[in-house]
């Protein structure tokens, strides 16, 4: 019995376990998302909601899962890089709308950073938590860098980014309907600036222009946030 348990331990901390679990849960998420077509059933959210309880109830430590998980995380740099390709695909739209996009991203940085700092003050959060939350509307790799710089805890930053992304991806399309926004450029830039890559994935579902505007805004707003955070 002990022998079996030991072997199980070895299998669980093998990188393949984390990768397989992630792919299977993502596929379940995709399947549910296609079947029910509601933004709340976001594949990322479903995967996370499946994986965390599985690890928790089977008493599998996060580090064992992350043996495989970290291999997937390595690909975040190429994934962010590939956003450059999706921007290139929309070169014509970019040429046409560069001014509204740049202004929108600048406003988004101001509103996001300003409202986050103000809300943190209102709720009496300490500097560490504030620093962790300031970059919560920019894409994960940028947010982590900014948070480190501001003395935040990166784990909380990632949680904030993902939570914000899911909230934005779910609620922003509802706001679009509520306020009857018909401008795909505005919606795309808004999603990219407020809800990071999860919002961008959602924007891609809304339409090609929305998706491209969103990935462009994601990059531009991220860069602007890095620059602004240098002065915070």
């Amino acid at each position: 019995m002990n022998n079996v348990l030991n072997n199980l331990q070895a299998i669980l901390s093998n990188g393949l376990f984390g990768i397989t679990l992630t792919i299977v849960c993502y596929l379940i998420g995709l399947w549910l998302n296609r079947k029910f077509k509601t933004p709340i059933l976001n594949p990322l959210l479903i995967a996370v909601v499946l994986i965390i309880p599985i690890l928790y109830f089977c008493r599998i430590p996060f580090d064992a899962y992350n043996e495989g998980g970290s291999i997937i995380t390595v690909f975040l740099v190429p994934v962010t890089t590939i956003l450059g390709y999706s921007i290139y695909l929309q070169l014509e739209t970019l040429k046409k709308y560069w001014l509204p996009i740049l202004t929108g991203c600048l406003v988004s940085c101001g509103v996001s950073i300003g409202s986050t700092i103000a809300l943190c003050k209102v709720f009496g959060l300490d500097e560490t938590l504030t620093g962790s939350l300031v970059p919560h509307t920019v894409t994960t790799p940028i947010a982590v860098g900014v948070s480190e710089k501001l003395g935040g805890i990166t784990g909380i930053t990632v949680a904030g980014v993902i939570f914000t992304g899911v909230i934005g991806a779910v609620l922003a399309p509802l706001l679009v309907k509520l306020f009857r926004m018909k401008n795909p450029v505005g919606v795309g830039v808004g999603l990219g600036c407020s809800s990071t890559a999860i919002g961008t994935a959602r924007a891609m579902e809304l339409g090609e222009i929305q998706g491209a505007m969103s990935s462009m805004a994601l990059g531009v707003a991220g860069m602007m946030t890095v620059v602004i955070s240098m002065f915070l």
Partner: peptide
């Protein structure tokens, strides 16, 4: 934590979208 993320994300989305629409 949840409230800050939600409020600031929605404010950012609306401000950004309307800025873009306004400038256009």
């Amino acid at each position: 934590f949840a409230l800050i993320c939600i409020v600031s994300a929605l404010l950012t989305f609306l401000a950004t979208a309307y800025t873009v629409i306004g400038v256009m």
